[in-house]
Amino acid sequence: MAEPVIQVEDLSFSYGDALVLEQVTLSIESGEFVGLVGPNAGGKSTLLKLVLGLLRPQVGRIRVLGQSPRRAVRRIGYVPQFPSFPRDFPISVEQVVLMGRLGMGRLLGRYDTSDRAAATGALREVEALDLAKRPIGALSGGQLQRVLLARALASEPEILILDEPTANVDQRAETDVFGLLAELNRRLTILLVSHDIAFISEYVSRVACLNRTLACHRTLEIDGDTVQQLYGGHVRQVAHGH
C-alpha cells in the first residue's frame, strides 16, 4: 500500500499553557477529500500551520509526501481563510496568481513562459481568466476566493489545503466552489477546513472532527450524537434534504 500523503502521529501542541492539540493522529491517503471540522479555537488552524511547516511540532511527528513539512510545502497548494495581504495593494490578478510559481524554476529575473502558461491555465480552471488584468482591490469576495484558489493551483500542487474557503462568499458562490473542488479532487488530494459540518459532509469522503483531540468519521456515519460530542450540547441538527 502506498504511503499516506499526510501522516500525523501522536501530535501535541500548546501555546504557553493552553494545550491546543492533544495526541492527534491523522492519516490522509492519496486522492482523498477530507473535511477537517470543529469549533472555533478547536485547533484547526494550528494543525494546518503544523502541516504547512509554519510551526514545528512539540511532541509527535508529521510527514507530508514522505518529507518533513518544511521540505514538502512547495508541493502543497494553500488557500488561506483571509487574504494575508492588503486589498489596496497595486497589483493585478495575474501577478498575484504568478506568485504561486515562486520557488520553482529560476531564481533571478522575471517569470518565464512556463510560469505564465501555468498561471493562465489555473485562472482558466477556476473560470476567472477574464479577471487577469483587474487590480486585486476590484474583486468581490467570491472572485477573490477563486483567484486565491488559482494561485494555489498555479504551483501544480499534489495536495490542496483550504482554510474555510467559503467563509466570505455567498451561498451560490459556495456551491460553485465546492463543485470545482469535487472536480479537482480527481487529480488532487484535498484537505478542507470548515466550521460548517452540515454543508461539507455531502462533498467530502471523510470528516475529521477536531476539538483538541481528533476523531474521524466516514461521511455517512455523522449524526446528531457526533455533532453533539464535538460542539457540546448547544448545536441542534437541522434536517436538510438537498
Binding site: M99, G100, L102, R151
Partner: peptide, 10 residues
C-alpha cells in the same frame, strides 16, 4: 505583498 505566501513558497 504577502509574507505568508512567500514563506510557504520557500
Amino acid at each position: 505583498f504577502d509574507e505568508e505566501l512567500a514563506r510557504l513558497r520557500g
